[in-house]
Simulated scan of single mutants.
Amino acid sequence: MRLVPLLLCTILTVPLLNGCQSLRLADNSLTPQRIAFEHSPAGCQGESCPLVNIDTLSFAEQPALNALIERSLLEMTVDGPGAPLPPSLQAYERNFLAEAQPGWSSYLQAKVREQHDGLLILELSSYLATGGAHGMPGRRFINYDRKLEKPLSLQDMLLPGQEDAFWKLAQDAHRRWLAAEKLDQDADYQKTWPFQETANVALTRGAVLLKYDVYSIAPYSSGHPELKIPYPQLNGVLKPQYFPGRG
């Protein structure tokens, strides 16, 4: 099933707000231009045709941010150790369709999750189906500090020496998640799917959000589990400027 219905073999450039492209709004947020296209091999017809669906963003006068988004999406296409990184999304699409078998598909998406306090929170998604019972989805966050003009690593977000404290809070969040899913008394489940750290951390308004890949802390059927750390718990752990309202 196609996840995003788009015009086949057509490039769309869709402004996301009132016809304005990449404008700074009254609240100083950015409005990106959406760039979306979906292609199948030339001349192929029918549901079994391989396809590539790419739905990404472009920000006016932000070449470094645009390059970061493209590179991050391309990194999500690498399906094995040592596999080369495609030079561009167009090259990835061309190579995938040249090698694809009937029924194969690849989806890549970048979207704005939130903007607040000088931060741009992007969520990237991927889905690769190359046979088997189901495809493999992926997720990634970019926390882009517009003042520093750079993506933030976890070390950038935390006060010095507080990484262990952060992961202890994440383990507490994991225990709350288990309780909410009624799995906190299931010893076999917890042994099979123990807590792990994740690189997918987002500074959302409501809480610091941790999102996990499938097969990490839960089976495929659970999708992408999300853990939340409330900001009050992060006093003395998170840098003050990254608390909502202080940036």
Rank of each mutant, 00 (worst) to 15 (best):
D213R: 05
P219M: 04
I69D: 04
R175Y: 12
P41V: 09
E114R: 12
L122V: 05
Q62D: 05
P84C: 08
A179S: 15
L120M: 11
V214N: 03
L183S: 05
L210G: 05
P225H: 04
T198E: 02
N95V: 04
L68M: 11
P41M: 11
V14G: 05
K211G: 00
Q115C: 09
S48I: 08
S58R: 13
N66G: 09
L73T: 06
P15V: 08
K111D: 12
A91M: 00
G19L: 02
N200D: 14
L16M: 15
G82E: 06
E61A: 14
E123P: 01
M157T: 11
S48P: 00
L73H: 07
P160N: 07
L158Y: 03
L108W: 05
N28R: 15
M157V: 14
H134D: 11
A83G: 05
P86D: 02
L128C: 07
V4R: 13
G43H: 11
Y212E: 00
L124W: 02
K182M: 13
A42S: 14
P87M: 02
E114Y: 07
D145N: 09
K150P: 03
I142T: 03
T192R: 15
P232G: 04
A26M: 13
Q90T: 08
N95F: 03
L25A: 14
G138E: 01
S125H: 14
L25G: 12
T56A: 08
L85K: 06
V112F: 07
A173Q: 03
A170Y: 04
L203R: 08
Y92K: 10
Q190T: 10
L12E: 15
